[in-house]
Computed example of a mutant assay.
Amino acid sequence: MTDQPLLCVNGVSKFYGNRIGCQDVGLELWLGEVLAIVGESGSGKTTLLNCISTRLPPTAGTVSYRMRDGQMRDLYRMGEAERRFLMRTDWGFVHQNPADGLRMSVSAGANVGERLMAVGERHYGNIRETAEDWLGRVEIGLDRIDDQPRDFSGGMRQRLQIARNLVTVPRLVFMDEPTGGLDVSVQARLLDLLRGLVNDLGLAVVVVTHDLAVARLLSHRIMVMKDGAVVETGLTDRVLDDPREPYTQLLVSSILQV
């Protein structure tokens, strides 16, 4: 990790009329660090993720990102074209439903290759070779490179979405319930794969999950949300093994009783 954060969030709030999406949230994230945002449905975790990733403008607060030249930039003072370029190159976004993050009517290889073209790669041979390498890394057989994602299982689609996001070696990746809707055995394989790739590439990751087991396996730090506010934050093992706030204690104990 460097001595400067990659991402700084200050006082971010989002209101929908009188309803609170999230309120006065602050955080810092460093390269090589995984932050899990956890809470029940309606806690505000997905709203916060969408505000941080510029998918949803906050009502108040700032989100700043350290560019590759070392400059901290306020994301909401950037032009739309600049933000879109960041999202295609330096960032990744892994959706809960992989169909939201893939082009279902083009081949698996083309899904990976499109991201490479966004960073300037034009040589077909190089694009295909890199796509083959990444399909191998996410455990998709090379005989499936010309198949469309609509012919893949849910777990394969999610692995392809991960390959599509990571092929440009982004510095920051957002994940929204990346194991949601998958069978337990498929979840376990996917989590092992994700943990290995994140460690190998030294990414910064913000992962939203309601599953504390996912948070424990993937994250260094954890942020617990309730009713749009952060109620507890700290090192993942500390928060899950010795929760200080009653709500966190309830969350942890309810998991243990299942």
Rank of each mutant, 00 (worst) to 15 (best):
F85E: 13
C22I: 04
T89L: 07
I37S: 00
G92D: 03
H123A: 09
S41Q: 07
A108R: 12
G32I: 14
V119S: 07
G101H: 05
F85D: 10
E33D: 13
A81I: 14
W30K: 12
L49E: 01
Y16D: 03
D100A: 14
G17Y: 12
R122A: 09
A36I: 05
S13I: 08
N50A: 07
M72W: 12
H95R: 08
L29R: 05
I37N: 00
T62C: 05
M78A: 11
S107F: 08
L116Y: 04
Y76I: 05
N50I: 01
A99P: 07
G79H: 11
C51V: 05
K14Y: 02
G61C: 06
T47A: 03
R19S: 14
V12Y: 03
G70P: 09
C22E: 00
G109S: 13
N10F: 11
G26Y: 13
Y65K: 02
R115H: 02
S107Y: 10
L27F: 06
K14D: 01
D74V: 03
C22S: 07
R73C: 00
Q23D: 08
G113H: 02
G42P: 03
N18T: 14
G70N: 09
D100Y: 13
D100G: 08
E33Q: 15
L116V: 09
G109K: 08
A118S: 13
I20A: 02
G21S: 10
T54M: 06
D69H: 04
A110M: 08
G42V: 02
